[in-house]
Computed example of a mutant assay.
Amino acid sequence: MSTDIKKEEGFDGQKAIVLPRPILIKNCVPNPLLSGIYITDIGFYPKAKFHYRERDHGIDQYILIYCTDGKGEVKIEGLSYTLNSGNFIVIPAEKSHSYASDRNNPWTIYWAHFKGHLVKSLIGLLVKRQKGYKGSVQFNESRIKLFDDIYLNLESGYSRDNLYYVNMSFSHFLSSFIFDEKFNYSSKKSSVNPIDISIEFMQKNLHTTFTLNAIAKSANLSPSHFSALFKEQTGFAPIKYFNHIKIQKACQYLQFTELRIKEIAATLGIDDQYYFSRMFSKIMGVSPQDYKLRRETLRENKSL
């Protein structure tokens, strides 16, 4: 059996770019800003009937396949994964694999091959969050526009600036699969994630001091379940996280207002300014007074 069996009869509207390997070797591999993650091939196959590829020994690139319509099957080292609309999969480098579009309901896919010294860690994060190579994302027009932007810029050539832009953008594109709930966050009118709801509740009530029970109630969860879930998703206990965003707001007050330390503490629901100063110093590594002084000095130096 061949190690690289391919059948592509051509699909109406298909597009693909294979970056010249000498371009990658010269401009990406030795460049510290590009060598972490860079595209080697990229394309879009609509209604790709008879699309099939088999590689017994894998390749030295990772492959992302994102299905937006139809159906297909991917096999990685003998394990089968069915991809429907909204599913994506990452095929690791150097692993035997095959993939095929369903003949009765052929898939429409966006795909890319990529490599770099940061890719293994990045995909490890994706696999950890998705609990496997396959995942699902909500359809988001911004994700498609980002892909098209990458593709169109590559079509215009392989200048150094183009390679910088498309590969930095591609990192963002990949992150949209790892953090689907965060991608294009500003356009999402509401969130069904209880942790996001609780954080929004905190942000709207920075002037208040809450107990764990009160914050958990905002997410309609028991305190114990909420606390465990919150720490799993953010890495912090809820109250500690609440204090962090209070201090984040305090930094803004120190930088952009003439409020005194005592006034800032009161605005954030903290009656004891000395307790506030200790909390600020622990989180920021400097006292509020020193933070304000440093920011003022920085602004003065920039104006010179």
Score class of each variant (00 low, 15 high):
residue 130 Q to K: 14
residue 45 Y to W: 08
residue 208 T to G: 00
residue 133 Y to F: 15
residue 299 R to H: 02
residue 196 D to F: 08
residue 156 S to H: 11
residue 147 F to Y: 15
residue 82 T to C: 02
residue 64 L to C: 03
residue 47 K to E: 10
residue 100 A to V: 11
residue 54 E to I: 02
residue 218 S to G: 07
residue 186 S to W: 11
residue 169 S to L: 14
residue 17 I to E: 07
residue 64 L to V: 08
residue 103 R to F: 08
residue 85 S to G: 14
residue 44 F to H: 13
residue 217 K to C: 04
residue 233 Q to L: 14
residue 292 K to N: 03
residue 44 F to C: 03
residue 172 H to Y: 08
residue 227 S to T: 15
residue 28 C to L: 10
residue 103 R to K: 14
residue 224 S to M: 08
residue 178 I to T: 15
residue 66 Y to H: 15
residue 97 H to L: 07
residue 269 G to C: 08
residue 286 V to R: 05
residue 298 L to S: 12
residue 263 E to D: 14
residue 89 I to T: 11
residue 281 S to Y: 03
residue 189 K to G: 14
residue 98 S to I: 00
residue 19 L to I: 15
residue 53 R to G: 03
residue 301 N to C: 02
residue 207 H to E: 10
residue 194 P to T: 01
residue 263 E to H: 00
residue 7 K to R: 14
residue 25 I to F: 04
residue 167 N to D: 10
residue 224 S to H: 08
residue 209 T to I: 05
residue 227 S to L: 05
residue 270 I to D: 01
residue 174 L to S: 01
residue 205 N to E: 06
residue 256 F to M: 07
residue 130 Q to T: 06
residue 34 L to I: 04
residue 71 K to W: 00
residue 57 H to W: 12
residue 42 I to A: 07
residue 14 Q to S: 13
residue 275 Y to M: 11
residue 248 Q to R: 07
residue 286 V to K: 11
residue 183 F to G: 01
residue 233 Q to R: 15
residue 2 S to Y: 06
residue 79 L to Y: 05
residue 299 R to S: 05
residue 95 K to Q: 15
residue 243 N to G: 14
residue 169 S to E: 13
residue 179 F to S: 10
residue 83 L to A: 04
residue 183 F to S: 04
residue 157 G to A: 04
residue 67 C to K: 00
residue 109 I to M: 06
residue 265 A to I: 07
residue 89 I to R: 04
residue 82 T to K: 09
residue 121 S to I: 06
residue 15 K to Q: 15
residue 296 E to F: 05
residue 111 W to M: 00
residue 176 S to E: 05
residue 25 I to P: 00
residue 217 K to H: 11
residue 131 K to N: 13
residue 103 R to S: 13
residue 150 I to D: 04
residue 225 H to E: 13
residue 231 K to I: 05
residue 207 H to A: 13
residue 94 E to D: 13
